[in-house]
Write a protein that binds this DNA or RNA. Structure first.
Length: 230
DNA sequence: AAACACAACAACCGCTCCTCT
DNA sequence: GAGAGGAGCGGTTGTTGTGTT
């Protein structure tokens, strides 16, 4: 069975959005709310594919989006989550509500991948396994957390990555706290929330993000699995 | 100043997943 | 339970900006 395209390719405008198109889309969504993207082009008169409208809204026009430089802290979160989840950009983005999955993906591909490659150029392919698989191997997390940790994106629609993401939420929360409170972080570590691989990853990356001059020193050490080229 | 190379980012495409009937 | 349609995701490409020769 061949699925028809999401919209008629004939007459559909492509390429960069103009300010006028943005205004039309934003005012439509302000009036009707996001959703029902299929009908947006016809209702607004925009000569755009419904997917294009959705992408434009979610990535650029949606309120609360932060653009521009990623902070070292955000970099650390991205790197660590990427190591655990793989290229699940939407899941990673759920931990950085002000950033979009597209933004994170682009930033990873253009900045972080290179940074990490430079950081450890001779990694074997054996290390490409995301850390969430390591969890089961090491039994660091034996049961999913059942506490009420809110997880953006998974609370309404349980997704395929939800179970690991729930675990991650705790993990990341612990790490984020650690940035400002190393005592609590140590407590998490001692209570078994983090295993040694994860801790190495975090500490190593904090060196990387905080001070590039340390790269040559870190390079000598055993690499965490996370920082790998796919 | 021009040509070229590279980097960064916006957007598209194809596929999968989810929901509804 | 199956099928269809819509939404979402991730990989990739295209375009533009910036730096270098």
């Amino acid at each position: 069975m061949v699925r028809p395209p999401c919209c008629d390719k004939v007459g559909v405008k492509k390429g960069p959005w103009t300010p006028e198109e943005d205004i039309i889309l934003v005012s439509y969504i302000q009036e009707h709310g996001p959703g029902n993207w299929r009908s947006v082009p016809t209702k607004t008169g925009l000569m755009r594919c419904s997917k294009s409208c959705r992408l434009r809204w979610t990535n650029y026009l949606r309120p609360g989006i932060k653009r521009g430089n990623f902070t070292p802290r955000e970099e650390g979160i991205i790197v660590h989550l990427q190591a655990m989840l793989g290229n699940k950009w939407a899941a990673i983005a759920s931990y950085l509500p002000q950033r979009t999955d597209n933004d994170i993906k682009n930033y990873w591909n253009t900045h972080l991948k290179k940074k990490l490659k430079k950081f450890q150029p001779s990694i074997s392919h054996n290390y490409t396994t995301p850390l969430n698989l390591t969890f089961s191997t090491h039994n660091t997390i034996q049961e999913p957390f059942t506490e009420n940790h809110s997880l953006p994106g998974s609370c309404h629609n349980p997704s395929t990555y939800a179970s690991s993401a729930e675990n991650l939420s705790k993990l990341v929360e612990g790490w984020m706290r650690s940035s400002s409170n190393s005592t609590e972080f140590t407590r998490d570590m001692q209570s078994g929330l983090l295993n040694h691989d994860e801790l190495d990853s975090l500490l190593l990356y904090e060196n990387l993000a905080g001070d590039e001059r340390k790269l040559s020193m870190v390079h000598e050490e055993q690499p965490p699995f996370s920082y790998l080229e796919k």
